[in-house]
Amino acid sequence: MSIQHFRVALIPFFAAFCLPVFAHPETLVKVKDAEDQLGARVGYIELDLNSGKILESFRPEERFPMMSTFKVLLCGAVLSRVDAGQEQLGRRIHYSQNDLVEYSPVTEKHLTDGMTVRELCSAAITMSDNTAANLLLTTIGGPKELTAFLHNMGDHVTRLDRWEPELNEAIPNDERDTTMPAAMATTLRKLLTGELLTLASRQQLIDWMEADKVAGPLLRSALPAGWFIADKSGAGERGSRGIIAALGPDGKPSRIVVIYTTGSQATMDERNRQIAEIGASLIKHW
């Protein structure tokens, strides 16, 4: 067993022997301040990774656009098919120029040779490549099948209805392509620590998230040296922004954090800054 596999296998073990965790309302004060600064709703939840206990939450059962955070769930569904012998990570998928959609920095470079399922998941999570996500959605049967996968996990809230990039439209009061912070946090925890996926697939999923290259201005910008984070960000229309993450000190994750916002007129930089400040408060009061 590799060191990384050992780390993920012992996530519940280490967490069980940690000192009790206590909620700190100071972080919620910052979440509410972010709402004021952005002029928009902000949803927040913080779960203990081992027990699933909610440590703090704000608007945990209000719907927010998922945006690209759905790509972690998508690759979880792909990995479940791999575990069941219905898919192979090494299978190569070929596609054409007509398949390319807006923001496809990886797939646009491989029109000639195609990409493997493993490479597509890596591109979808680490670079948020939209064509990679659409190609992977095709392998599982489309958005409705991802929703069905989530329902089978016990998540009857999260739903995907459309493809990239239309799913980022974020129309107010439109339930399409949305989740709730509580539902997303619980589902992410199941994917990373539950028995739904094999140990190898859980490790692969967290490795992809740990290698995320496009979430630097968010929670990662607030992390002290030595902290662990595996995350996936999302951005959408109407001032929408979000991030889902597993993080913790001492090089291992111990909490799940989900943050979503929508309806702001603020710039992307300002949305990023507010999420980073929430992260800084979380870490300060850990």
Rank of each mutant, 00 (worst) to 15 (best):
K213E: 09
D174T: 05
K53L: 13
A235C: 03
A235T: 06
H110Q: 09
A148E: 14
H151A: 14
G234M: 05
H156Q: 13
V82L: 06
W208P: 00
P25C: 09
C75R: 00
N152F: 11
P217T: 11
A225D: 14
D48M: 06
D177V: 01
L100D: 02
Y103V: 05
D250Q: 15
R238W: 10
V157G: 09
T138E: 15
G226W: 06
N134Q: 05
I125R: 00
L197G: 04
A124P: 00
V101G: 07
H156L: 11
S122K: 13
H285D: 07
I283K: 05
H151F: 10
G234R: 00
W163S: 10
I244E: 01
S51N: 12
T126F: 03
E175W: 13
L150R: 00
L282T: 09
P249R: 09
N130K: 00
M67D: 11
T198C: 10
S122V: 12
A215G: 09
A40E: 05
R92P: 08
L137Y: 09
T179C: 05
A16C: 14
E169D: 13
T262Y: 15
S281F: 15
P224I: 03
N173M: 15
V157P: 02
S233E: 01
L191T: 06
D48T: 05
F149R: 07
L137N: 04
Y44Q: 01
I275V: 12
L150E: 02
A16K: 06
H5L: 09
E87F: 08
S240G: 12
S51K: 09
L28I: 03
I259G: 01
L19Q: 15
A182R: 14
I244W: 00
E169H: 11
K252Y: 12
T267G: 13
L19T: 15
M127Y: 11
K32Q: 15
D83T: 05
T193R: 15
D250M: 12
H285P: 02
S104L: 01
D161R: 03
N50P: 14
N152L: 11
T267I: 09
R7L: 07
W163Y: 12
S254C: 14
D48K: 04
I244G: 02
P65Y: 03
K53S: 13
A124S: 11
M180K: 14
N134Y: 04
E56G: 13
T112K: 15
W286D: 02
L89Q: 05
S96T: 13
Q86I: 14
H151T: 11
T139W: 06
L188P: 00
A280R: 13
T112Y: 15
K190D: 15
E102G: 09
K109C: 09
M184I: 14
V8G: 08
I45T: 12
P253A: 13
L120C: 06
V21H: 05
